[in-house]
Write a protein that binds this DNA or RNA. Sequence first.
DNA 1: TTTCTTTGGGAACTCCAATCCGCATCGACC
DNA 2: GGTCGATGCGGATTGGAGTTCCCAAAGAAA
Lengths: 173, 173
Amino acid sequence: MVSGKDWADATMQFDKLDFMLLAELCTNARRSHVELSERVGLSTTACARRLKSLEDSVIAGYHASLDLKQLGLGTTVVVRISLESQSEEALEAFEKAVIESPSVVRCFLMSGSDDYLVTVIARDIEDFERIHKTQLSRLPKVSRIQSSFALREVVNRIAPPAAFQQWRAPRRP
Amino acid sequence: MVSGKDWADATMQFDKLDFMLLAELCTNARRSHVELSERVGLSTTACARRLKSLEDSVIAGYHASLDLKQLGLGTTVVVRISLESQSEEALEAFEKAVIESPSVVRCFLMSGSDDYLVTVIARDIEDFERIHKTQLSRLPKVSRIQSSFALREVVNRIAPPAAFQQWRAPRRP
DNA sequence: TTTCTTTGGGAACTCCAATCCGCATCGACC
DNA sequence: GGTCGATGCGGATTGGAGTTCCCAAAGAAA
């Protein structure tokens, strides 16, 4: 680290066109090369070339997002979980079990007093009670579980808009 | 509601093949019809037909997911925000501003003592300080902000595996 | 049985994506 | 200034994918 700005190294390899492509793909991953090229003002060939290099570096994958309400899964619950011990074995055992839990969509190891922040998707409140009993309370080494229900989803984005808003000089001046 | 199981109505319209397709698309949204048909054991035509009907109903969209660390955005912060008032105007003003905040990726209106749970993506801790000053503390009607840093991401899924694991009788017995 | 409905499969057509090639621009170096 | 290599764009071609017909098979209802 020279300047104290590591991230500059990371983002400097991309220019405005790359970020335009990334933004397009984040909102609609199934756009054809033709559509993409029209939107960013490039030929389909150049577009495909950039796309490939982005896929080799910064694009982790392409995913379909589902309307979970239509699948009967309309309830999001955020669960704060503290463990009895913070030993490596305890963390490892807990995490292994969380990954296996079929109702969990997100789990972060957190700083502060709560050890883990887990997001659970349930059909409804009664279904969450079942999940709590059959999945959460059976997680190993848990000392405290604290659940909060999400009443409404205000924002849900793949990436922050800020990610697309800084770029180095264009490749061609 | 007859039986107390609303969700049965919602999920009953899909069978095992549909859920197999959905699971495939959630892990890789760019699979061709050929690949999909091979994986679920259908012809490409039948596959495409089911796909179209799924896109018209339960598939909300296709998104590229980015390796945010490679973009220099390696820090996830979960922020609990309480408002001065719970009036409709306060909520509305706050939400409008949150949606505009370029570093926010998720925001839920919560039950319990904390009004909103907001997930922020930052470059690093110093960058979060900047975001805190320039974005979070400027949100309207905020009374308390409490931040927790995510030390590690343990699970991050588009949909819970449980969503794919129950289906009605196959369309063709 | 006849008919209608639903779903799967095949063939043809259209269009897209991947690749090869040539061209333009920039920088380094002699 | 001239040359060489590196980098990036664009055009044309070809193999493959997606789409759209049409028909077949299996139940359900009359």
